[in-house]
Simulated scan of single mutants.
Amino acid sequence: VEAKCKRLIFASSAQTIESYPTDIQVNKNMLVKPKNIYGVSKCFGEALAAYHAYNNGISAICLRIGAYEFPKDFTEMNARDLSAFLHPDDFNQLLIGCIETNHIQYEVLNAISNNRYKRLDITEAQEKVGYLPKADAFELFRLKKE
C-alpha cells in the first residue's frame, strides 16, 4: 500500500483445495478445503490479497499453482500430480496475462497446464487473462490413454 503497488500477484497453491476427492474437478467458486497447514497458509494469503483489493484499491490475482516442474527434472508423478501439472512455459504465459490484463479487482485463478485430465478448472484463467496453456503432462511424459 505504501509503495503504491497497482497489482499483486500472489503465488497461492492447489493445496488450498486438496481435501476434495480426487475425482472432482475443482473450480474457483468452490470453498477452500486445505489438507495441511501449508494449504491453510495459502488460504490466508488469498484472504489477505482480497482484503487489500477491496479495501486498499490494489488489484490482486491469486494463482493456485499446481505441480510446477521442469520436464527435464521429471520425477515419478502419480495421476493426481499429472492432472495438476504446470509447465514453466505455460506459467510464464499466464503470468504475462496477469500482468497485462486490465480491469481486475480480485481474482482467484487456477494455474495448471492443458492436461488431458485436469484437477483444477482453468476456464476462468482462459476467460479473464487469455490463458492458453499448451502442455499436457500425460502426453509430455508419454503416458498411454486409457
Rank of each mutant, 00 (worst) to 15 (best):
Y117W: 13
I99L: 12
K134R: 15
H103Y: 09
L120Y: 15
D89W: 06
D121W: 04
Y131Q: 03
A137D: 05
N115R: 00
D89A: 12
Q105M: 08
G97S: 09
L132C: 12
E107F: 04
V108L: 09
Q105D: 11
S113F: 06
P133V: 02
N110R: 08
Q93S: 15
D90L: 04
L140I: 11
Q105T: 14
V108Y: 06
L120V: 02
P133G: 03
H103A: 12
N102Y: 07
G97K: 00
H87Y: 12
N114R: 12
E107M: 05
I96V: 12
Y131M: 01
D89C: 10
Y106K: 06
D90I: 01
I104H: 01
H103S: 14
L120H: 08
E107S: 11
N115M: 07
Q126E: 14
Y131C: 04
P88I: 07
I99V: 14
N92H: 10
S113D: 06
A111L: 05
R116D: 14
S113C: 07
E139H: 10
Y106L: 10
E127C: 07
H103M: 06
T123R: 09
Q93T: 08
N92E: 13
Q105A: 09
S113P: 01
P88C: 08
T101L: 00
L94K: 05
I112A: 11
Q93E: 15
K118I: 09
